[in-house]
Measured scan of single mutants.
Amino acid sequence: EALLLQRRRVTVRKADAGGLGISIKGGRENKMPILISKIFKGLAADQTEALFVGDAILSVNGEDLSSATHDEAVQVLKKTGKEVVLEVKYMKD
């Protein structure tokens, strides 16, 4: 459990079709971090076996998301290339 509370760096390699394969919720306007709300089976994020629903995305390719709005986070995630480095931390409810 202590492991979950540490920052983790996960590299996601996207397939030619399909994006990261995650849905996010939260954002500055909700006074919440950007959280992974869904991981789609078989897509890139799922294949890492290292990302979990409830993980907060702290940064994407080094771009800090700690004070991002939901829309800003969506845009940052959309413009990523084939390889995406996510810094995440599991957030307890």
Rank of each mutant, 00 (worst) to 15 (best):
N61K: 01
K38R: 13
L65I: 15
I36M: 00
A45I: 07
E49T: 11
V84A: 08
L3Q: 09
Q47E: 11
S66M: 09
L58K: 03
S23N: 13
K14T: 11
E87M: 07
A50Y: 05
L51A: 04
L20M: 10
D46M: 05
M32G: 15
S23A: 15
V88S: 03
T69M: 05
E63W: 13
D71T: 10
T11K: 10
A45W: 04
E1F: 06
D64C: 07
G19R: 09
E1Y: 06
K14F: 09
H70K: 09
S67Q: 10
I24N: 00
G18F: 11
G54E: 05
K89W: 07
A17C: 10
L20Q: 04
T11L: 10
M91Y: 15
I57E: 00
L3N: 14
V53D: 05
I57R: 02
A2N: 15
A2W: 08
A68H: 10
S37W: 06
F52C: 09
R8Y: 01
K89G: 09
H70M: 10
G62W: 01
R9I: 12
A15I: 12
G27D: 05
S66F: 07
V12R: 00
S59H: 04
F40C: 14
I36S: 01
V85A: 09
D71E: 15
G62K: 05
M91L: 10
I34T: 03
L4H: 12
G21F: 04
G18R: 11
Y90V: 05
V88N: 01
E63S: 11
Y90I: 05
E72D: 08
G54K: 02
Y90G: 09
A2K: 14
M91R: 06
I57P: 03
N61E: 05
L20V: 07
S67V: 11
L4K: 13
G54A: 02
K92A: 15
V88I: 05
I34L: 06
A45T: 06
G26E: 03
V10A: 04
D55V: 01
M91H: 09
E1S: 09
R9C: 12
L5W: 10
I39N: 04
I36G: 04
K38Q: 12
D93R: 07
L51S: 03
A50S: 14
I57M: 03
A50F: 05
F40S: 15
F40Q: 14
T11D: 05
I22W: 03
A2E: 14
L65S: 02
R13M: 13
N61Y: 02
S66A: 10
G26A: 03
F40M: 13
M91D: 10
K92T: 15
A68F: 08
I39F: 01
I34G: 02
A17V: 14
D71Q: 11
R7I: 11
L43M: 11
L3W: 07
A17R: 14
Q47C: 12
D16G: 13
A15V: 13
R9Y: 14
A68W: 00
K14A: 09
L65T: 09
G27A: 04
I22P: 01
R13V: 15
E49W: 04
L43W: 10
L4W: 11
A50W: 03
L4I: 12
M91Q: 12
A56N: 06
E49C: 14
D55W: 02
F52L: 12
G18I: 10
G54P: 00
T69N: 07
G62R: 05
G21T: 00
I39W: 05
T11E: 09
I36Q: 01
L4G: 14
M91F: 11
K14P: 14
G21V: 03
R7F: 07
A15M: 12
D16F: 08
I39L: 08
A50H: 08
L77V: 03
K25W: 13
G62L: 03
V53F: 00
D71L: 11
R8G: 01
S67C: 10
H70P: 05
E72Q: 14
A45P: 04
G54S: 04
D46Y: 12
A45V: 10
R9F: 14
K25L: 14
E63N: 13
S59Y: 06
K38E: 14
E87N: 05
K14E: 07
E49A: 15
E63C: 13
M32N: 04
L4Y: 15
G21C: 04
I36H: 02
F52G: 05
R8T: 00
T48F: 03
G18Y: 10
V88D: 02
E87V: 09
A45Q: 04
H70I: 14
I34R: 01
D55N: 01
S66C: 10
L20P: 02
D93T: 09
D16R: 11
K92N: 15
K14V: 08
R13W: 11
S59R: 10
T80A: 13
T48S: 11
A2V: 15
L65E: 01
K92P: 15
G18K: 09
V53G: 00
R28S: 13
K92C: 12
L58N: 00
V10W: 03
G26I: 01
V88E: 00
S37M: 06
L86S: 09
V53S: 04
L5S: 13
I39C: 02
I57V: 08
E72S: 06
K38W: 07
L4C: 11
S23C: 13
S37F: 06
Q47Y: 07
L20H: 04
A45E: 05
F40A: 12
A68E: 03
D71W: 11
R8W: 00
R8D: 01
S23I: 11
S67G: 14
L4V: 14
A2T: 15
A2I: 15
D16I: 09
S37Q: 08
A17D: 15
D93G: 08
V74A: 10
E49M: 09
Y90H: 12
L20E: 03
R13F: 13
V88F: 01
Y90W: 08
T69P: 03
L4E: 11
I36W: 02
S37V: 08
H70G: 07
L3Y: 14
L4P: 08
D55R: 01
